[in-house]
């Protein structure tokens, strides 16, 4: 793991905090004095991954900047559930302009701060996957290309949830959405695998690109804090399960995100200047079935009959990530893949 690994302490750095940790090893979220950038009373659904991800990320940013973060938010769930007049849940300076322009607005804020020589104040742009990989993509790319001093965070829940779960450019293959219904010969989303914006961001050779999930809070905090050590355009892609859109149990939000990482479907890594510099190894290798089964958006892969070919295609994608990002120690890969493969065969025959 990229963050400082600490001497064995019960849960070590896997849990949020713990009394046994030294002060400098504590996560931001474990602190009673954390800033709660997104505070009580927001209207996110039960078990919302995005609400959690946003608080973790922005609190980390607030710690990194000494409480001098300005957030710019794209339209989307996060914006709607946090700021319905007359109430806002934000506790830091926050601006919402449009769906597709958050990176540019953030760049504008950054430009203003630079003009005013306020290099102590930092800017975070944030949005969901729709606002990032689709409608805001041009602005995002422009921000990257100009290397504006903005950390842009995409909270990826893999569809347009705010409008009722329609497919986005980040929707994975086979997933059911309101516009990729599980009917016909190719049920669910028949396209690719979702737009891989972290890789696209890397292609811009911006100083820092990273992925994270809400299942590893400390990693997410680390990535934010690491990002804040750079000037220029930075991109953080955070997987945030959506119980409503994914058809997962509200209590399973973190579990689902964890499985996304442990299957290899969502590689957790960081890159500097366009090169991957670290990847978080898989701790408990899991076949994709375990991930797919607990989400109703994939129910059609198992019922009425299993669609083995589709599942295998998803598995191949996960395996490819494992190889590409080195998510397992080299020696383990063959053995692990063999095991997973065997498990698959068993499931098929049973």
């Amino acid at each position: 793991m990229p963050y400082q690994s600490i001497k064995f302490i019960q849960t070590g750095s896997l849990a949020v905090g713990g009394r046994l940790l030294a002060e400098d090893q504590r996560s931001v979220q474990s602190g009673a004095q954390r800033s709660n950038s997104l505070t009580l009373g927001h209207r996110a659904c039960q078990g919302c991954g995005e609400a959690l991800g946003a608080r973790i990320a922005l609190d980390a940013c607030q710690r990194a900047t000494g409480g001098k973060t300005i957030a710019v938010n794209a339209t989307g769930c996060l914006e709607v559930f946090s700021t319905p007049y007359p109430e806002t849940s934000w506790q830091l300076p926050w601006l919402h302009s449009l769906f597709g322009n958050a990176p540019a607005v953030a760049a504008g804020v950054a430009a203003a701060l630079r003009a005013k020589s306020r290099d102590d104040v930092r800017v975070v742009g944030q949005g969901g996957d729709g606002g990032t990989v689709d409608i805001g993509f041009a602005c995002l790319s422009g921000m990257f290309e100009r290397n504006d001093d903005v950390l842009y965070i995409c909270y990826d829940n893999e569809a347009y949830m705010n409008t009722g779960v329609q497919r986005s450019g980040a929707t994975p293959y086979a997933a059911r959405t309101a516009t990729t219904e599980p009917v016909g010969p190719e049920p669910g989303n028949k396209f690719g695998q979702g737009k891989n914006v972290p890789m696209i961001a890397m292609a811009h050779e911006i100083p820092y690109v990273a992925t994270a999930t809400v299942s590893d809070l400390r990693d997410l905090e680390y990535k934010v804090e690491r990002a804040m050590e750079f000037r220029g355009a930075r991109y953080l892609h955070v997987l945030v399960p959506c119980p409503l859109g994914w058809g997962s149990a509200p209590e399973s939000t973190i579990e689902v995100a964890r499985l996304a990482t442990q299957t290899g479907l969502f590689p957790v890594f960081e890159a500097e200047d366009g090169e991957v510099v670290s990847a978080t190894p898989i701790r408990h290798r899991t076949g994709v079935r375990d991930y797919l089964r607990i989400q109703r958006r994939y129910a059609h892969l198992f019922k009425p009959a299993e669609r083995t070919e589709m599942i295998d295609r998803i598995q191949r994608g996960a395996d490819r990530n494992i190889t590409r990002f080195g998510l397992l120690p080299a020696d383990d890969i063959d053995a692990e893949l063999a095991t997973v493969g065997a498990g698959r065969a068993e499931e098929i025959t049973s």
């Binding site: 019960q10 849960t11 849990a15 949020v16 905090g17 713990g18 009394r19 996560s27 979220q29 474990s30 709660n36 997104l38 505070t39 009580l40 927001h42 996110a44 078990g47 919302c48 991954g49 609400a51 959690l52 608080r55 973790i56 809400v214 809070l217 939000t253 973190i254």
Partner: peptide, 13 residues
């Protein structure tokens, strides 16, 4: 054992 998990993972603070 006060690992702070509940405190950290609650989306609703």
């Amino acid at each position: 054992f006060e690992c702070d998990n509940c405190y950290g993972v609650c989306p609703d603070n």
